[in-house]
Amino acid sequence: MADPVLQTRGLTAHYGDFQALFGIDFEIRQGETVAIIGSNGAGKSTFLRSITGMLNTAGQDIAFLGQPVGGISAHDLVRKGLAMVPEGRKLFPSLTVEENLLIGAYGRSGSEWTLETIYDLFPILAERRHHGGTDLSGGQQQMVAIGRALMSNPKLLLCDEISLGLAPIVIKDIYEAVPKINAHGATMVVVEQDVNQAMAVADRVYCFQEGRVSLTGKPDELTREQISAAYFGLEDGEAA
């Protein structure tokens, strides 16, 4: 079996006095695509903010590529090969499409991805390269955000709600890029509210509920009932 790219044991997170995560055990292996599903407030985004170093994780048991990374800041994690497509895309409005992509390469190592390979992946961006990043349609902006993250040559790519607010046809376009990204050697974590989309793309699924992992497994081995119970937190018999 391949080595784990990222592993957390008993991960917790707090916002002030409020505890948002209660002991998350998580693992993703080389070449895998893992989906994290769960309702609003289940702790998905907090989990991503923790493992990317946007929240302080000092003293926590997090391993990235076999090295402990608890407490390491976000910019250092990027340099080690972790990249994130943030929720809401967060493009830089005063930068053009191409500049947004180039800035993704600011702290990178390696040369897996270049402007040319990104433009191969999303040809529309080549046409729009000199437009302002936030002048594009939502779907195109999402492509820029993914391309920007890829420009750092990540070993692990985290995607936070990349289908949120997009039309189904656009979502399909974006998810078609996932196998191509995998082919370049990046392992992916996809956080999704759209369960069907997540099931279609993922090798394994983690379901979060109230800051805990309520279910994990391979999509084809999980039943609809199991998933909805884990997703909504319904007890047996309550589902009806």
Binding site: V78, K90, I103, Y106, S152
Partner: peptide, 8 residues
Amino acid sequence: TVRLMGAN
């Protein structure tokens, strides 16, 4: 967001 680009 610029921190996610590897900038300190």
